[in-house]
Nucleic acid binder design. Structure first.
Lengths: 350, 350
DNA sequence: GCACGGCATGTAAAGCTTTACATTCATATG
DNA sequence: CATATGAATGTAAAGCTTTACATGCCGTGC
């Protein structure tokens, strides 16, 4: 494989001139430039980026840590990150963590070993290096785009999950629902906790006893949404509205409701969160809260670029807007004509 | 940031010994080793992987090219690739191509510029470098795990899509279906063409006129499955079985059937391909062909490791098994009591 | 005609590691 | 006891590029 020396010899210039021709073409005379370009084309030369990085002290790689590649929610963040990275000439390394501390730490180690310049974290766990860094130290080049534990000074991009969740409850309340059940995400995640808080806040604002609302804990998977509904039905929880902390669980929940013979939305109205693309094609199409996932990724990458340019300047927080998407999975609460619970149609006695 | 020289000074040995302590600890005496380890711990030293790679002439990165990060099908391949890569100490760089030739070529360029040792291709398009390489030249370190154009000597991992698709048709035929419609994937992809061939082969084997089967071309998205069914219904195609080239289109198709008031499977039986996780929670749960996506990724990564070890040895093809998963979206064809088309229940006149 | 400034180019060091080869030292062997 | 052998360690080159500094050249202004 040709190197810069070969080019220099072929073009009969010094390696410094070749290097300049590549990085600052304006600094070399046109005839010289042409000779060099011809030599590069002839030998099919590509600079060795390891040597470039070694010398320049950076890799132009940014590592993105995701818990799982199967999560369409985090995938959308990655797409946004890619969009901006591509423009900036930065490469994205995807690190799958399985939410394993050691694995995440090993990816963070890639920053120290110069394989990456920084990390965008889409995981609920935090690197040991962050947890142990005393607050006064310069923060490692990490941007949070999904989880955002309080009390940490790392730059972050997020939406107001609390208000967004409250808005979903409000949507149901305005349709006359008073018995509203909730399926949460894993409560060890800040995002899940915020969405739960928001659901409860919405209930409280509507004057509904939020401490009596039936709450089941899920883990964001289809299966857990399904299981949660089975649990609610078994407990005869009696509800006409169901708030799910993400769309995937909402789809699982709908499958369970269907199986139990409960009509959607006539028996139970279901709302989700995230506006997953499968939701629009569900039966019936799912009412949900659209969160700007791609835009969040883009903002996170821009924040990263700022941070790499000036580590002190970029200590910021960006909050993006959300949007309610109403589809057919939510509708008016069953009328008072049948004062029973939603499950009445199949004869369940609350 | 500490470098190997700092460690050598602190431990009072030469840098060569430090290097050996890291790469071949057995070659250095225990007391020396301890001194070095203490120094490394004290200075929190991490070898600069750019320098290591520069010297060793490899990066220990493998780039995986995917058309889109939103495709759960390719995501599963990536998971498999990751599994094996992690064990082997290889890092996976995910390159999103949008099936854009220039973008793909730029990722391939990373091999020449030493940022990656090889590529696993999950895309339908091929790098210019591959297309232009004369067959007698040594193949670039690329493994195909999704597309497999004939006449190319690159190592590849695949399933027999033709036979798998034929098996799906056979499943419907054995339930008495004789009017079977097909929704294909994008026909510029080999995989789509193979699945279509397989569907037609299945029809032919059953003695059904495969040239008269209603065929609509989709593009693997939910929306295109939905649109395809609308098209079939508008054309009064009259069918009781529907073979979709992937699950995502099958889910879209089911949404359209539902909207048209056609029962599944009583009116139309639907089968998909890939065993996407959402299929199991669809309404009704989707019959599908399970393809070993994760295992394919794992095999592809192993092939890559072989290839990097010995480029001449690994010119192989691996074919993995598939499995029919029967769920409730497929059932017996409507009986002869109502000799009309599946759409009769809603009064459509074929 | 000379000095100076500025541009284009060259020289060489630096960035950090691995590794072939050299050296040292101790042990085993005759 | 002298020498061969082997293990442990050191020396220095190589891997490829960028860049501070040096050099050479030309044109300009006096």
């Amino acid at each position: 494989m040709a190197n810069i020396k070969d080019i220099a010899e072929l073009a009969q210039v010094s390696i410094a001139t070749v290097s300049r021709a590549l990085s600052t073409p304006g600094a070399v005379r046109p005839p010289t430039l042409q000779k060099i370009e011809a030599a590069i084309a002839q030998l099919n030369y590509r600079p060795n980026m390891l040597a470039v990085g070694l010398r320049r002290r950076r890799s132009d790689n940014v590592i993105v840590a995701v818990p799982s590649i199967f999560n369409p929610f985090t995938s959308a963040f990655v797409q946004g990150i890619e969009n901006v990275a591509r423009e900036a000439g930065i490469r994205v390394l995807l690190g799958i963590t399985d939410s394993d501390q050691a694995l995440l730490d090993s990816y963070v180690g890639m920053i120290a070993s110069k394989q990456a310049d920084g990390m965008i974290l889409l995981d609920k766990i935090l690197p040991t290096a962050v947890l142990q860094t005393p607050p006064e130290n310069p923060a490692p080049p990490i941007v949070l785009a999904c989880e955002y534990p309080p009390g940490l000074s790392l730059p972050r991009v997020r939406i107001d999950n609390v208000e967004a969740a409250a808005m979903l409850v409000n949507h149901l309340v305005r349709q006359g629902h008073t018995r509203i059940a909730v399926i949460t995400g894993p409560i060890d995640q800040n995002m899940s906790r915020d969405r739960l808080s928001g659901f409860l806040l919405g209930l409280k604002r509507a004057g509904l006893a939020s401490d009596k609302a039936p709450i089941v804990h899920g883990d964001f998977t289809l299966q857990s949404g399904y299981d949660a509904v089975r649990q609610l039905l078994a407990a005869k929880a009696g509800f006409t509205g169901l708030c799910c902390a993400n769309d995937e669980m909402a789809l699982g929940a709908m499958a369970a409701l269907r199986e139990a013979g409960i009509a959607i939305p006539d028996g139970v109205s279901v709302v989700g969160f995230d506006n997953l693309r499968f939701g629009a094609f569900a039966s019936p199409p799912l009412t949900t809260m659209e969160v700007p996932t791609v835009e969040t990724g883009e903002a996170a990458m821009r924040l990263m670029l700022d941070m790499l340019r000036d580590p002190l300047d970029a200590n910021r927080e960006i909050i993006l807007p959300y949007r309610l998407v109403v589809r057919q999975s939510s509708g008016p609460a069953p009328t008072a004509v049948k004062p029973g619970k939603a499950k009445k149609p199949r004869g369940q006695t609350s």
